[in-house]
């Protein structure tokens, strides 16, 4: 679905190659400032690479109009400070292109537990609640494509601010969406959760690609040490990877 070849942005990203196929669930990992957000914006068609190119179904993504992309590509970005006390439900609806009075589907409201939030103004929600509303907004915009299994979901740190239960329910939900044929690319800071839910991962460090591929290819002690600068213990417990950083670092 998306092919990146030698994508670079000076000072941010360097020669990134990546192929994301339909129905795959990618997690982009790396330290703060590793270039995750820039990469996601390029893959969402919201920023242009300075070098290399980003192809969407074989066509440069810059050839698609924003209005066309908006029909099947969901994007969730970093938090926006709201200046108007819009009720959350109305706020989500503004982005539901052309769906008018249709109510939010139950799967979506349940996955993000939106019910108690919809009537409250966005300015009065906590950080995690705002995050859930924003995720719902992103998915609702392309809901028709999601139902058809043709959506591309690009979510920048969707788990930020969510409590552990909401992280688990949301990642399970994303996994289901991928099984229906949708492609998902998110950035993540939780290695254990990523190892459990993603189908593929990419590890960045300082704009460089450290590793990318399936979970077992990426989540090796060697790769993680290169990506994060500290050592990790990786154990396989009933087919679930347990990843623990060695802390404090052992001096060698």
């Amino acid at each position: 679905m998306i092919t990146l070849s030698k994508v670079g942005v000076s000072g941010r990203l360097d020669a990134i190659n990546l192929v994301v196929n339909k129905a795959q669930h990618w997690h982009i990992l790396g330290q703060n400032g590793a270039g995750k957000s820039t990469l996601l914006q390029i893959m969402a068609g919201l920023a242009l690479p300075q070098h290399g190119h980003c192809l969407l179904s074989g066509t440069p993504i810059s050839d698609y109009s924003l209005a066309h992309l908006a029909r099947f590509r969901a994007f969730h970005g970093q938090q926006q400070v709201h200046s108007f006390a819009i009720p959350a439900g109305q706020y989500i609806d503004f982005y539901g292109a052309g769906k008018g009075a249709h109510p939010l589907p139950a799967v979506l409201t349940e996955a993000l537990e939106l019910k108690p939030l919809l009537s409250r103004p966005v300015t009065r929600l906590s950080g995690g609640e705002q995050q859930r509303v924003n995720l719902a907004r992103a998915l609702w915009q392309v809901w028709t494509a999601i139902e058809a299994g043709e959506a591309l979901l690009v979510l920048d740190e969707p788990m930020q601010g969510l409590d552990i239960r909401h992280q688990l329910t949301f990642l399970t939900f994303l996994q289901q969406l991928c099984q229906q044929g949708n492609s998902t690319i998110i950035s993540s800071h939780n290695l254990t959760l990523s190892a459990r839910f993603a189908s593929h991962a990419m590890l960045l460090n300082g704009g460089q690609q450290v590793a990318s591929g399936t979970i077992s290819q990426v989540f090796t002690a060697e790769n993680l040490k290169m990506g994060y600068g500290i050592a990790f213990d990786i154990t396989n417990n009933q087919n679930t990877l347990q990843i623990h950083p060695q802390w404090p670092p052992v001096l060698s």
Partner: peptide, 13 residues
């Protein structure tokens, strides 16, 4: 309402 990036994501420059 959600900022410039979200407006772009929703389909307008």
């Amino acid at each position: 309402y959600g900022g410039e990036t979200l407006a772009a994501a929703a389909g307008v420059t």
